[in-house]
Design a binder for these strands. Sequence first.
RNA 1: GCCCCUGUAGCUCAGCUGGAUAGAGCAACGGCCUCCGGAGCCGUGGGUCGCCCGUUCGAAUCGGGCCAGGGGUACCA
Length: 548
Amino acid sequence: MRAKTYLREKLKDAIEKGGWSVEKEIELNNPKDPSWGDLTTNIALQIAPQRGGNSLKLAEKIAKGLSLASEVVEKVQVAGPGFINFFLAQGELLRSLQDIIDLGEEYGRCDLGGGKRVQVEFVSSNPTGPLTVGHGRQAALGDAVANLLEWVGYKVEREYYFNDVGNQMELLGRSLQARYEQLFDPSFPFPAEGYKGKYLVELAQKLREEKGEGLRGLPAEEAIPIFMNFASQRIIAGIKEDLERFGVSFDRWFRESTLHEEGKVRETIEILRGGGYIYEKEGAVWFNSSRLGDERDRVLIKGSGQPTYLATDIAYHLDKRRRGFDWVIDIWGADHWGHIPSMKAASQALGFPDGFLHYLVHQMVSFKKGGVELKMSTREGNFITLREMMVEIGKDVARFFYLTRGADSHLVFDLDLAKRESAENPAYYVQYAHARGCSIVEYAKDEGLTLGEGVDLSLLREPEELRLIRKLIWFPGIVEGAAKALEPHRLTVYLQDLASAFHLFYQRHRVVTEAEQLSKARLFLVHASLRVLRNGLRILGVSAPEKM
RNA sequence: GCCCCUGUAGCUCAGCUGGAUAGAGCAACGGCCUCCGGAGCCGUGGGUCGCCCGUUCGAAUCGGGCCAGGGGUACCA
């Protein structure tokens, strides 16, 4: 917003003219109470203690020293303990409103990122079973963060990393084998720790359709890879499909096995060894990560000769670094928290720049159904899939709901409530504002009214109109703030607020009336509102329907 | 034990990095369409911001100590 930079300069001049100094950027905020104007600064409160001065008097002095163009600022007011409040002139508001229509789909974008390459890695669930509602938060969060970064000028790649070899996969293979054998002989034993979900029974049936009895009684060395690959390929395909439905598409699906096949794990360990970070003890290869801030040292190669999860993950991140990203964001659930200090240590050991690797950790979601908290486990097979949720409450409601809360909050998702109240939940509230606006535009068209040239926006003077305009022009700032903080929920909260301002405007003022000029101006405001709603919802990955 | 996250209205959560009188949705109650979508709007009730100290002009926000819930502390991933 131009007014902000303009005011910052003017304030700085006025303050320095008075012989004071400003060390950091002057804060200009959107006050919560409209009677405090459009922009407010606490600068007097901040610098008054410099010389033990009175902040209220200083604020008055600063305000008096400002020479502001009346077409930008209508009124300056000193309030409370020393806030300086600015009321923008109507003309300034209207110029910003015009921007919304002029910029269209681009409105809200900026070039903060300067085209830097960022990778966002998220979901990355191993293909041991279908995606559950627990993964939904991660999918919604990661995709929204990626979208936000794109909007502020980064070049973003979305990546999904998954394990397609190793103990868990073998167990999966053995579980499928057992389910397959059980189709012929129900007494066939099921592995003690096996994956019990019914999805493996279904896969076994598919396998029987394709291969008949041909896979029965094979020796383990031969059977396990067959069953394992069949299971993981089918499950990954299902995960892809679910994510597509959820509106998330990845640029790359990274298989862990490639790291081993290309010798990258061994190579990484050799690099660490070269740096003096490796030693051997009790038949295992250790990383002395405690020297780099980790609680203790970590095993990289087990006594069995197998690399640990940490070893492959370090190799994976070295690979990311070599692919030339400027910034890498890993989105993880809080259950992986313990892994972070080790990876931070590895980042240092490998000489990654500070801040190259950023962890965005979100807290767990718990789910309630029938008033009871659910304990879900993929291994035990008792879970609700993401797909089931999409069928029940819809992708839009689910995504919006996941994003109404900050990543740091543990959230309780009451599935009955989400379904029962689906007609009254916040996602519909925002979408409804959009549909309603579209319907007004349709109606106006039928009455022969379209945007066209020569709209006199100065006719927009009602409080509800001005309030809506103010909310609309906050949008670019909200996007920027949400992107900087990696907090998409700020946008979700904002959109509800905006929808509320729109609904109130609608309720109080008829758009299409006999007064043609006023109707045109209001129609313009409706178009601008639709634009901001659409752009905002797009970032969240929620659709903006024209009809509901 | 140690580390991290959280504790705000009956419920689910915001609170813009220390600001002015703590907000929204749901739930409860009372109003609003002969008129562009009532999936909406307006109003009422509802709070020791877990508790105790501290920092300062000023604390839900920062620091310390308790209490409670969740997560993490593997040669698991």
